[in-house]
Amino acid sequence: MSHLTDLPTWAAIVVCGLVLLGSAIALIGSLGLLRLPDFYTRLHAPTLATSGGVILICTASIVCFAVLQSRWVFHEVLIIVFVIMTTPVTLMLLGQAALYRDRVEERRGVPLKQKPLPEPADE
């Protein structure tokens, strides 16, 4: 009927488990975005969706199509590589931007910028 009919039982169990686990982790990550109290704690939540969710769901897809051999699975590998390489950069930049804005607005509870040390003489 469809391509999924040809999947052996063990592969089907693995794919089901990985897909459900991955989406549950992504859901918990977004729930953290909703429920955590301030920005700096919320900054930790999306990492859950990217490191857990993306890897598990891509692995499910790799297992499914590697067993079926109906299409190449390189795109999933590329998605995993790109997401793992790019997410830390985004979150780091957002954290720095938030810190900068909070310092400009002089909010409480944000660590102050340390005074810059004097320039070394040999520069």
Binding site: Y40, H44, L48, S51, P88, L91, M92, G95, P111
Partner: peptide
């Protein structure tokens, strides 16, 4: 940053000190 428990915020090159959350 990829570890969900910690987030890198600022690194001071002169002092070599790192601020993280």
């Amino acid at each position: 940053t990829a570890t969900p428990g910690t987030a890198w915020l600022e690194y001071d090159r002169r002092r070599k000190s790192l601020l993280f959350h």
